[in-house]
Simulated assay, not measured.
Amino acid sequence: MTRVARPKAGRAARVAVIGIAALVGVLIVASLAAQLLGVRVYRITSGSMEPTIVAGETILTRSTAADDLVVGDIVTTQRRGSERTVTHRIVRMEDAGGERVLWLQGDANPNPDPAPYTVSQVHRYVFTLF
Protein backbone atom coordinates (compact mmCIF):
# COMPACT_ATOMS: atom_id res chain seq x y z
CA MET A 1 0.00 0.00 0.00
CA THR A 2 1.38 3.34 -1.02
CA ARG A 3 1.07 6.25 1.33
CA VAL A 4 0.13 9.61 -0.11
CA ALA A 5 1.71 12.60 1.59
CA ARG A 6 -0.71 15.23 2.73
CA PRO A 7 0.09 18.76 1.72
CA LYS A 8 1.74 20.73 4.53
CA ALA A 9 -0.49 23.71 3.80
CA GLY A 10 -3.54 21.70 4.94
CA ARG A 11 -1.88 20.85 8.25
CA ALA A 12 -0.80 24.45 8.78
CA ALA A 13 -4.33 25.65 8.08
CA ARG A 14 -5.75 23.23 10.69
CA VAL A 15 -3.20 24.37 13.26
CA ALA A 16 -4.05 28.01 12.50
CA VAL A 17 -7.80 27.35 12.91
CA ILE A 18 -7.21 25.55 16.22
CA GLY A 19 -4.99 28.42 17.40
CA ILE A 20 -7.57 31.04 16.45
CA ALA A 21 -10.34 29.06 18.16
CA ALA A 22 -8.23 28.79 21.32
CA LEU A 23 -7.52 32.53 21.26
CA VAL A 24 -11.22 33.34 20.86
CA GLY A 25 -11.99 31.04 23.79
CA VAL A 26 -9.41 32.75 25.99
CA LEU A 27 -10.78 36.19 25.03
CA ILE A 28 -14.35 35.13 25.88
CA VAL A 29 -13.27 33.77 29.27
CA ALA A 30 -11.21 36.92 29.97
CA SER A 31 -14.15 39.14 29.02
CA LEU A 32 -16.54 37.25 31.31
CA ALA A 33 -14.01 37.35 34.16
CA ALA A 34 -13.54 41.10 33.67
CA GLN A 35 -17.30 41.68 33.87
CA LEU A 36 -17.61 39.57 37.02
CA LEU A 37 -14.70 41.42 38.67
CA GLY A 38 -15.92 44.86 37.57
CA VAL A 39 -12.81 45.51 35.50
CA ARG A 40 -12.91 47.99 32.63
CA VAL A 41 -10.39 49.33 30.17
CA TYR A 42 -10.38 53.00 29.14
CA ARG A 43 -8.36 54.87 26.54
CA ILE A 44 -7.26 58.29 27.81
CA THR A 45 -7.89 60.99 25.21
CA SER A 46 -6.68 64.16 26.92
CA GLY A 47 -3.57 65.30 28.75
CA SER A 48 -5.42 66.41 31.88
CA MET A 49 -3.83 63.66 34.01
CA GLU A 50 -0.25 64.09 32.81
CA PRO A 51 2.35 63.16 33.87
CA THR A 52 0.58 60.37 35.83
CA ILE A 53 -1.45 59.17 32.83
CA VAL A 54 -0.44 60.37 29.37
CA ALA A 55 -2.91 61.07 26.55
CA GLY A 56 -3.20 57.99 24.35
CA GLU A 57 -2.49 55.50 27.14
CA THR A 58 -4.89 52.71 28.04
CA ILE A 59 -5.75 52.17 31.70
CA LEU A 60 -7.30 49.36 33.70
CA THR A 61 -9.93 50.27 36.30
CA ARG A 62 -11.99 48.33 38.81
CA SER A 63 -15.54 49.05 39.90
CA THR A 64 -15.44 50.48 43.42
CA ALA A 65 -18.15 51.52 45.86
CA ALA A 66 -18.03 55.22 46.74
CA ASP A 67 -17.62 54.28 50.43
CA ASP A 68 -14.23 52.73 49.61
CA LEU A 69 -12.76 55.85 48.02
CA VAL A 70 -10.23 58.21 49.57
CA VAL A 71 -8.99 61.65 48.59
CA GLY A 72 -6.13 61.13 46.15
CA ASP A 73 -7.67 58.17 44.31
CA ILE A 74 -7.86 58.44 40.52
CA VAL A 75 -11.34 57.54 39.30
CA THR A 76 -13.25 57.29 36.06
CA THR A 77 -16.88 58.31 36.17
CA GLN A 78 -19.46 60.15 34.16
CA ARG A 79 -21.71 63.02 34.99
CA ARG A 80 -25.36 62.07 35.37
CA GLY A 81 -27.20 62.45 32.09
CA SER A 82 -23.98 62.37 30.07
CA GLU A 83 -22.22 59.59 28.19
CA ARG A 84 -18.76 61.20 28.44
CA THR A 85 -16.38 59.85 31.03
CA VAL A 86 -13.74 61.72 32.96
CA THR A 87 -10.65 60.28 34.64
CA HIS A 88 -9.39 62.61 37.35
CA ARG A 89 -8.05 62.58 40.90
CA ILE A 90 -10.34 63.05 43.92
CA VAL A 91 -9.39 66.31 45.67
CA ARG A 92 -12.36 66.53 48.05
CA MET A 93 -15.27 64.30 49.17
CA GLU A 94 -18.47 64.62 51.16
CA ASP A 95 -21.15 62.12 52.13
CA ALA A 96 -24.59 62.70 50.63
CA GLY A 97 -27.18 60.27 51.99
CA GLY A 98 -25.81 56.96 50.75
CA GLU A 99 -23.83 58.54 47.94
CA ARG A 100 -20.65 60.57 47.81
CA VAL A 101 -20.04 63.95 46.27
CA LEU A 102 -16.63 64.02 44.62
CA TRP A 103 -14.64 67.04 43.52
CA LEU A 104 -12.24 65.92 40.83
CA GLN A 105 -9.22 67.56 39.26
CA GLY A 106 -6.82 66.49 36.54
CA ASP A 107 -3.18 66.50 37.67
CA ALA A 108 -2.31 68.90 34.83
CA ASN A 109 -5.30 71.18 35.48
CA PRO A 110 -4.87 74.32 37.61
CA ASN A 111 -8.39 74.04 39.09
CA PRO A 112 -10.92 71.34 40.01
CA ASP A 113 -13.66 70.41 37.55
CA PRO A 114 -16.43 73.07 37.48
CA ALA A 115 -19.07 70.88 39.17
CA PRO A 116 -18.87 67.97 41.62
CA TYR A 117 -19.90 64.41 40.77
CA THR A 118 -22.48 62.61 42.94
CA VAL A 119 -21.79 58.87 42.80
CA SER A 120 -22.54 55.60 44.53
CA GLN A 121 -19.94 53.71 42.49
CA VAL A 122 -17.04 54.60 40.18
CA HIS A 123 -14.16 52.89 38.41
CA ARG A 124 -10.93 53.35 40.35
CA TYR A 125 -7.64 53.46 38.42
CA VAL A 126 -5.53 50.33 38.93
CA PHE A 127 -2.66 50.75 36.45
CA THR A 128 -1.67 51.77 32.96
CA LEU A 129 -1.72 48.91 30.45
CA PHE A 130 0.14 50.59 27.58
Rank of each mutant, 00 (worst) to 15 (best):
P51Q: 09
V75N: 00
R92E: 14
R80P: 12
E94A: 13
V75C: 02
D68G: 14
A66S: 13
D68I: 01
I53R: 08
L60Y: 00
V70R: 13
G98A: 06
R89M: 03
I90K: 10
P51A: 03
A65I: 07
Q78C: 02
R79E: 01
T52L: 15
T58S: 13
I59S: 06
S48H: 06
V86Y: 09
T64R: 06
T61S: 07
D73N: 07
G81W: 01
P51H: 12
R89I: 04
G56D: 04
E50V: 06
H88K: 01
A55R: 14
T64Y: 08
S48D: 04
T61L: 06
T76C: 08
V101D: 08
S48W: 04
S82N: 10
D68W: 05
V70T: 14
V101T: 12
T76H: 00
D95T: 13
I90C: 06
R79W: 05
T85L: 11
G97N: 15
T77K: 02
G97S: 15
H88C: 05
R84C: 09
V75H: 08
R80N: 02
R92H: 15
M49A: 08
R84G: 04
A96Y: 13
T77I: 05
R92F: 12
D67W: 02
V54M: 15
E83F: 04
V75D: 00
T61M: 00
P51V: 00
I74V: 15
T52C: 07
R79D: 03
R89C: 10
W103P: 09
R62E: 11
E94R: 15
V54D: 12
R84K: 12
V86T: 12
R79P: 02
E57P: 09
R89V: 09
G72R: 09
A66P: 02
I74A: 05
T58D: 11
L69Q: 04
D68F: 05
A96W: 07
L69N: 02
T52S: 14
I74F: 01
V54H: 13
D95W: 10
G97H: 11
V91D: 07
A96R: 14
